[in-house]
Nucleic acid binder design. Sequence first.
DNA 1: CTAAGACCTCACGTTGACGTCAGAGTCAAC
DNA 2: GTTGACTCTGACGTCAACGTGAGGTCTTAG
Lengths: 127, 127
Amino acid sequence: MLRIGEVAARAGVSVRALRYYEEQGLLEAERTPSGQRRYPEGAVGRVRFIQQMYAAGLGSADVLEVLPCVHTGVATPEMLARLVEQRDGIDRQVAELTQARERLDEIIRIGEEHVPGARSVTASPRR
Amino acid sequence: MLRIGEVAARAGVSVRALRYYEEQGLLEAERTPSGQRRYPEGAVGRVRFIQQMYAAGLGSADVLEVLPCVHTGVATPEMLARLVEQRDGIDRQVAELTQARERLDEIIRIGEEHVPGARSVTASPRR
DNA sequence: CTAAGACCTCACGTTGACGTCAGAGTCAAC
DNA sequence: GTTGACTCTGACGTCAACGTGAGGTCTTAG
């Protein structure tokens, strides 16, 4: 059983963040008689997943909806629908980002033309 | 010359947003003698660009750095560097999003396996 | 035994991109 | 000339994911 600081360090987040996740119902912890939190090893991966979802633009409530599937590996049709919805949301985001990237690239190309002396930091082909 | 409401409608943002952009130095407007803002047609496209950059995760300050190039079409080496930096930031974001998407997809697949032809939409299974 | 870290619970502060309300002036139509 | 839609400037509110003390308890190495 890990202490909160240990989990935070391994997952690359702050202690405060972990307490916040608990507050949001995203992360549970056992307690020692004195009230200190103790986490199983799996908590680290769980926290990483939460971070990943945040990075994908989901809010705490969305993550909360999605988490049961991750934990149990089983999903109701409802949950599946939500998962698919979130995935599609990410897809839309990627599309937007890609558009923005194209836009910037275009500006960069034009800029390079107009400042010929500059070291050519040519556009890396998008994967 | 367009009025602020017209620009807002065409660009799909709120009037408040336009005034905020002005406050941030992202969007300039002429003024009628009575003080009302009047925008040229190009403002709509400019606003769309700003929105796109926000969607890409840039803050007002970042957009402000990038905008001169868009406007003038000319870039100093410094500006180019910033542009490239922002573009790479977007690339990193896309990578993260793609990872998150994969993760969700994986969970969806597993979930589908465990609920192959289920029709229990109504009965909430007790957890 | 003791001192230094870790940890605990409030609870207020932060940041960014606006929302929203108040009170007042402006413009086009009827 | 008056109504009603539009606009103006402040200025406070919002929401999310934490940051940051304050004041006190726990644990453990020496």
